[in-house]
Amino acid sequence: MKNNKPDLGRRRFLARSGITVAGVGIVSAGLLSATAWAARAVGEQGSATLMRMARDIYPHDRLEDKYYAAVLTPLAQQAEADADLRTLLQEGVAELDRRSRERFGKPFLDIAAEGDRVQILRAMEDGAFFQRLRGDLMMGIYNNPELWPRFGYGGSAWQHGGYINRGYNEIDWLVLS
């Protein structure tokens, strides 16, 4: 099941915090491959570039590509029907590569050092293209219940009777001096 319905709450919040967000994909079987997902919207090179960028924005080396792709896939799908969004993504990728070539003589994807890529991205962070990616990723990574166990976050607790009988007062490492 894919859930592409935008969450009004998040979108409203982000609109007020200067970012925008689309739907957040829930990871599941049947996802497009990491390189194919955005090919129709921004081309193969473009889709690989966005994946690299996504992993640089919120780098969690232990998280698989599929979690980042789950954010980018609905974005690309939306871009197929939304010409403005398609332009935002296409021009964003082009701008990223233009700046990368200017500074390092190669497209963004070919810059090996994370620090060098971050330098390019920092210079673009105020723009709509970057903030669109950032907003979608923030929701897709940190507001994704599938990932909460990986971050050690419990999520909704009331249906389990809260923590009153599930260790709210347990901590074993605190040495009381």
């Binding site: 969450d7 009004l8 709450g9 998040r10 979108r11 409203r12 919040f13 929701m139 507001n143 999520g155 909704s156 607790a157 009331w158």
Partner: peptide, 11 residues
């Protein structure tokens, strides 16, 4: 028990 959903619902 959902931070963003409640933000959107009641704010």
């Amino acid at each position: 028990n959902d931070e963003w959903k409640m933000f959107g619902k009641i704010s």
